[in-house]
Simulated assay, not measured.
Amino acid sequence: MSDNLNQIAEDFIKILQSRNSAEELIRFYHQDIEQIEFPNTLTKNKAVRNLEDLKLASERGKKVLQKEEYEIIKSYSFGNTVIIEAIWTGTLAIPIGNIPIGGQMKAYFAQFYEFKDNKIIKQRNYDCFEPFN
Results as ranks from 00 to 15, higher is better:
E37G: 09
D127G: 10
I33T: 05
N20T: 13
I121W: 03
T41V: 00
F78Q: 13
N4W: 02
G90N: 00
H30C: 08
Q111N: 15
N45S: 10
G90L: 00
L54Q: 11
I36S: 05
N133Q: 11
F129L: 11
R27N: 09
I15E: 10
T91Y: 00
F129M: 08
I120Y: 04
P39D: 12
G61V: 07
K119S: 06
G61Y: 10
I99P: 04
I33H: 04
I101F: 05
L42E: 01
L56V: 12
N6L: 13
L42Y: 02
R124F: 13
D32F: 07
A9F: 05
I72N: 00
A93V: 04
D117G: 11
N4E: 13
E114C: 08
K119H: 12
N4P: 00
G103Y: 07
V48P: 09
I120T: 05
G102L: 04
I33P: 03
I84H: 01
F38G: 01
L65W: 10
G102P: 02
I73D: 03
T43H: 13
Q17Y: 08
K116T: 13
Y29P: 02
T91L: 00
W88H: 05
Q104A: 14
F112P: 01
N118S: 10
K62G: 03
S21F: 05
L51D: 06
A107C: 03
E114Q: 14
K67N: 08
D117A: 14
F78P: 00
K14C: 12
K67W: 00
Q7S: 14
T43C: 08
N20S: 14
N50T: 10
Y76H: 06
L92T: 11
I36D: 03
L16D: 04
V48G: 07
Q17K: 08
K14V: 10
I36H: 03
Q111I: 15
Q123N: 14
I87K: 04
P100F: 08
L65P: 01
I101C: 09
I87T: 10
K62D: 08
Y108V: 01
I101R: 12
F112H: 13
P131R: 04
F115L: 12
N98R: 07
D127V: 15
D127S: 15
L65D: 02
Q35H: 14
L5G: 11
Q35M: 14
S58C: 08
E52Q: 11
K74G: 00
F78Y: 06
E52N: 09
D11M: 04
K122G: 07
A47H: 07
P95R: 12
G79M: 12
A107M: 02
I73E: 07
K74Y: 02
L56C: 02
C128W: 04
D32R: 13
I83F: 07
E130G: 01
E71P: 01
F132C: 08
E68Y: 01
P95F: 06
I84V: 13
V82A: 11
L51V: 01
I96N: 03
I84L: 05
R27P: 08
G90Y: 00
N50M: 04
N6D: 15
E34L: 12
P95Q: 12
V82S: 12
V64S: 10
N98P: 01
A22N: 12
Y29A: 06
E130M: 10
W88Q: 01
Q31V: 10
I99F: 04
I15P: 07
Q123P: 09
I36W: 05
T89I: 04
S58I: 04
N20H: 15
Y29G: 01
E37D: 07
L25R: 09
S18F: 11
R19C: 12
F129R: 00
Q7T: 15
S77A: 15
